[in-house]
Design a protein around this nucleic acid. Sequence first.
DNA 1: AAAGCGGGGTC
DNA 2: GACCCAGCTTT
Length: 373
Amino acid sequence: MKRRYIDIITDNIIPSNNTYFATQLTKWYQQHQRILPWRATKDPYKIWLSEIILQQTRVAQGLPYYNRFIEQYPTIYDLAAASETEVLRLWQGLGYYTRARNLHACARTVVNQFQGQFPNNYKELLTLPGIGPYTAAAIASIAFKEAVPVVDGNVYRVLSRIFNIEVPINTNKGKHIFNELAQRLIDLTAPDVYNQAIMDFGAIQCTPVKPICISCIFNTSCLAFVMGKQNQLPIKLPNIKSKKRFFHYIIIEIGDELLMSLRKEGDIWAGLYDFYLIEGDKLNEFEQLTDELVDLIKRHQLPIEKKPKLYKHMLTHRTLYALFFRVVATAAFMKEAQVLFKNSEINSFSPESIKLLPKPKLICNFLEEFVYI
DNA sequence: AAAGCGGGGTC
DNA sequence: GACCCAGCTTT
């Protein structure tokens, strides 16, 4: 009988139907598990919400957001009935805002096409917006006890160390091997407990830096620890270098209102509000900016106030440098400026209404520092 | 396969 | 500064 390549590799790591790992892990979990609000329920809505919030996000950072979302939207019907802007405002500060837009879209899909009930299996869950392989496995196993393994950052780390797997985790081959191994290790009778156990184990014991090997239940069988290389695993191909972007914001004041701009899809902060933005390949003074609105401001001879602070805003793969220029508009200026805004969503907002708009952290920082709201 | 997408914590 | 976090989507 022909054996698949993947079986030969994983057979070499661990025989199929091995239960030692799951048994030990579950025993550890019963003593050390974290008490988290989404664990006190089997409501797929709450489990789904927690999983979306926790994508690339630490529990400590996501927890207050989870509580606010449950308070604001106790059921999926409440979430589906909200506006996308309202959902983004509640998501403000958490980052990766596509998650919030997909969260909202998914709620509406479940309400409109699934009668308000989440599909109860991995394959169907995978078709919903914002639900990928990890999240589908988490919901299917935790809410519906389907025996599909979760493979997240914790699982890559725990398995790569215990079984000394040196295949890079951010490659298709790596993903395939870790998935295959995880499928062999999962407790088929309690996949919900097992999946949460391995993630808690990664978060509490087998941490990214300085894992607590001294008290680890696997410290006699963990191949990485035995070889003293737990800090070298998992292997990850190097990330791309961080690129710089240079933002020049023009803040246009009309009376006590400010012009705010709704950011479009296809760039960072889609769906959030900032100011009129001129991007360049370097930082420029106002006079050097080549832009229609700048020309208009010059023609009307409106005074420019350059804010003294240069903002340096670090994202994972971007470093943003931002300068802010303030202009007090006249009626004549605005009449001409409206023409330039015809293809954008730029409107004036009072300080009170600006508070309610979803905004990037950079813009929040600026507004706070210059006491605009 | 590679790139884009946030913000915060930690060393 | 580098790395990581209960990853997903698009190209």
